[in-house]
Every structure is written in structure tokens, then in C-alpha cells.
Amino acid sequence: MGDGGSVRDGGSVRHDGFIELDRVEKVFQVRKRTGFLRSERREVRAVDGLSFTVARGEMVGYIGPNGAGKSTTIKMLTGILTPSGGRLRVAGIDPARERLRLAQRIGVVFGQRTTLWWDLPLIDSYRLMHRMYRIPDGRYRERLDRLVELLELGSLLDVPVRQLSLGQRMRGDIAAALLHDPEVLYLDEPTIGLDVVSKAKVRAFLRELNAERGTTVLLTTHDLQDIEQLCSRVMVIDHGRLVYDGAPGALHEVGDSERTLVVDLERELPPIEAPPARVVRVEGPRQWLAFPASRSAAPLVARIAAEYPLVDLSVREPDIEEVIARMYAGRTSA
């Protein structure tokens, strides 16, 4: 698939990773009603011969369309689900067999669900986790103070969780997942629904966490900017199979995906001419320009600002589904 990327539909892996999956499968038995008193059983293969390794300290994006198998993979990595086949290890531990032992070494954050106690002040959730994980008092205080500082939670500790904004609650959830200083952190849509400022805070913290603590991070998201700003490697899963493993920039090149620049001009004008961008839509003074996602938007923005009466503009990232669709189209036509 070009430099920096590869297609893997299974295959074996070397057993030298911190996270290891070797031909892992997960099959669900689903009953479907076929009549008033009749139903038939069918197999749903959520994960299909999945193999990859993640080294200690890596920060890896794990993406794909809805129903691709991402959440199923995370649940197997945490021990919530047991694989139907294959071999899976996290820090040398079989998650399904030793879930409690593994819990001391992993942290999990789900963007649309919270692990915090809804009606209690934020600090009370942390005190409960202090006891649950049996964190030594000195280590707990040191860790909590550092997390509160980095995630700017000082003014929120006495606020009931139900009164926190989504961005505040997300930062609170991340702190909760890291109180016991896990070696690996699974993040499922950690910036979903957040405003620009909150996203920037979460991303900055995760970069610092990875650099300072060497925490291994596996990140699932629908926001490609999360991947581009945080990860040096991205894996794409579709229909339970790994279809891409490489650099984020190369993913755009493989899929020939495009960003969209939305430009608001002072008045209605003919379509903007700024190759390699091309105008794909015009509505009065607003124009939409598509340009290669692998290219920086800065030169294009500077050129338009210098040559046209600009009022406002914004850059829209391609959807994960769009990137994957273009990637498949390229493979089919090759």
C-alpha cells in the first residue's frame, strides 16, 4: 500500500510486543426471528483473524467505521470478552484468564460512559478508587496532585459529577483511569462532543503523559485530528480485519482522501482558483474547496487570504468512513 503502510488480513506476529494479538477471533451467536414461533441462529464474526503488536510506550490510533470490531477488540484486551480463537496477551497476561491482575496495569476511558459516581463530588470518586485499587496513601496523594495540576481539576474536586460539563467530566474520567499509574491506557472516543478548547487540553495532557510516563496508549476515535496530533502509527480495522497499519499521513495518501476548506467571502465571486484545491460547491459568498488531506492547509489559506476579500474560513477533516471508502476504491482499481 505504499511506503509507511501495509495491509494485513491476519498472518502471524512476533511475540515481542507489549500488546500482542495473534490470529484473534471473536464470533457471536445471534438469533434472528424468521416467523411467529421460529428463529434461526447465525454467526456474526466481529473480529476475524486479527494480528498486531504494540510496543511498550507506543501511542497508536485504532480506527474504523461503526461495527468494524474496535470496541470488541478493546473488550477482549481488558478481559471483558473472551476470544473465540487465537492468542492475546497484554504485558504477558492473558486478559480473560487473569482479569483482576490485569486491572492493576491498565486504565480505560470510554467517551460516552463515565466511571465516576454521578451524584458525588469528583474527589469522592477518587477516594473510592484509592481504596478499590489499594493505592498506597503517599503514592495516591502524589499521583492525584499531579493529575489535578495537569488536567486543571483543582476547582472541580468538590463539584458533583452530574454538574460538570462534558469536557470537565472527560478530564475527570481520564484522571480516574490514571490514579493507579497503569502501564497501558485504552481510550475510546476521548474527545467526542468536546469543544475546541477542551479537545486541546485533553490532547496536550495525553502527549505529556506519554512523554513523561512512557504510558502505552491505544486510541479509538472518529476524529482524525486526534490521530494526527497524538499518534505516529494508525491501524485501520474493517469487518474485523486489519486493513492498514502505518503512518497517519500515509493513510491519507493510500486513500487519496481530501480535506474541505470552507471559505466565506465579503461578496459573491466566481469560483476561487487555487490549485491543487478545487471548488466543489458555491452558495452565494460561501465556497467549499477540496484539497489533498496529506497537504498542509497553511499555504492554501495564506494564498486565499492574500488574493480574495476573506471574512472567515474553516477546515473540515474527512470522516473515517470516507477515508476507508477511498482506500478500498484505490485497491479495487489498482
Rank of each mutant, 00 (worst) to 15 (best):
D223A: 10
A250H: 14
A290K: 15
R56Y: 03
K199M: 05
P121A: 03
L179T: 02
D312C: 04
L100P: 01
F18R: 02
A334N: 13
L269K: 11
I123P: 10
R171V: 00
R8F: 10
R45H: 15
K75D: 03
R14V: 01
R326G: 15
G172Q: 03
R295W: 11
G2V: 01
G17W: 09
E228D: 13
D312T: 00
A103I: 00
V280K: 12
Q225T: 01
P299E: 06
I174C: 00
K26T: 02
H252G: 02
V234Q: 05
R99E: 09
G57K: 03
K201Q: 13
V30D: 12
G10L: 13
A247Y: 14
A277Q: 06
L100Q: 07
S125H: 07
A46G: 07
L77F: 13
F36H: 03
D173F: 01
Y308N: 04
R143F: 11
E273A: 13
E43C: 05
M59I: 06
P121K: 10
A305C: 05
I272D: 09
K70N: 04
C231D: 03
G154F: 12
L178T: 00
F18G: 00
D188P: 14
R38F: 06
M59E: 00
A177R: 06
D181N: 12
A274E: 08
P160R: 12
L300C: 07
E40I: 04
V197R: 13
L37T: 07
R207V: 00
L156R: 07
R267F: 06
E58A: 08
A103C: 04
V315R: 04
K70Y: 07
R295M: 14
V315K: 05
R134M: 05
R316S: 08
L153T: 08
L120C: 07
L120M: 14
I106G: 12
T115K: 08
I304D: 10
L178Q: 04
K199E: 00
W288I: 02
M235N: 10
G85N: 10
E253H: 14
V30I: 15
K199Y: 04
G64D: 02
Y186R: 04
I272V: 05
P65G: 09
A290Q: 15
A211T: 01
K32I: 06
L166C: 02
L313P: 11
L120T: 01
R23L: 05
P271D: 03
I304V: 04
E253M: 11
Y133K: 06
Q163A: 08
L50N: 06
I135Y: 06
M235E: 07
K26D: 05
E40S: 14
V315I: 15
E183G: 12
Q229L: 14
E189Y: 09
D158Q: 05
I272M: 10
H15A: 06
A211V: 05
I237K: 05
L261Y: 06
Y126L: 03
R56A: 08
E268S: 15
G107M: 04
P271L: 08
V109P: 08
V27A: 01
R143L: 07
W117L: 12
Y308D: 00
S12T: 14
G284V: 12
D158H: 14
L166Q: 10
V47L: 12
L120D: 01
V234F: 13
G61Y: 08
V279P: 12
V243K: 09
A91V: 01
Q229P: 02
V90S: 02
R105M: 03
Y133T: 00
R14E: 12
L120R: 11
L313V: 01
